[in-house]
């Protein structure tokens, strides 16, 4: 068996050298482990960067529905059933219609996108079921508001609450 370290046969200088190298490799072992872990974290971070989707882009796609489909708030002419994209029907701009349009999971819906909508000139507000006034950014859309007799230009402010707590996906 090879005796790598035989302190009894070593002089003081040899003992110092052996101890020095032992400490060196202890530290190097720790540093190498840290480097490998940091490398793995770096790669994971790079992967997250590759799969990142801007939250405002996601919110824009979800928010398309609010002023474009009659199942949400868009005005639909009763006779011709023509839908006016980019419009808000005031008779529909309420909590009940919002729940028909976009309703998140009762228990975990706060982990998903929620919205607070405001018609600026009309000073009307309606929100999704898990909107808790913790908005991260605001989208704005120019809309035409149907009040029963005519269209009026207005601004639809969409406050976006991205998530509260850990993401559901």
């Amino acid at each position: 068996m090879i005796k790598l370290l035989d302190y009894k046969k070593m002089n003081k200088k040899g003992q110092f050298e052996a101890a020095r190298k032992t400490i060196f490799w202890l530290i190097m072992g720790f540093i190498i482990t840290m480097i490998i872990i940091a490398y793995a974290i770096l790669l994971a971070g790079y992967r997250n960067k590759l799969t990142y989707t801007p939250p405002d882009m996601k919110a824009e796609f979800i928010a398309l529905r609010f002023s474009n489909i009659p199942e949400c708030f868009a005005y639909q002419e009763p006779l011709t059933e023509r839908v006016y994209a980019g419009s808000i029907d005031l008779t529909k701009f309420n909590k009940g219609q919002m729940d028909e349009c976009y309703f998140t999971n009762k228990d975990e819906g706060h982990k998903d996108y929620n919205f607070g909508l405001t018609l600026v000139k009309k000073d009307l507000f309606v929100a999704t079921n898990n909107y808790l006034d913790q908005d991260v950014f605001v989208l704005e859309k120019k809309v035409m508001v149907w009040d029963g007799t005519k269209f009026e230009a207005d601004t639809l402010q969409i406050k976006v609450q991205v998530r509260l707590g850990a993401p559901s996906t």
């Binding site: 989707t53 996601k58 796609f61 928010a63 398309l64 529905r65 489909i69 868009a74 994209a85």
Partner: peptide
């Protein structure tokens, strides 16, 4: 998966 979810939301947001 992200793209298909966004595509679904886009289809919902367009009438017809």
């Amino acid at each position: 998966a992200e793209d298909l979810a966004m595509m679904t939301n886009t289809l919902i947001g367009t009438h017809g």
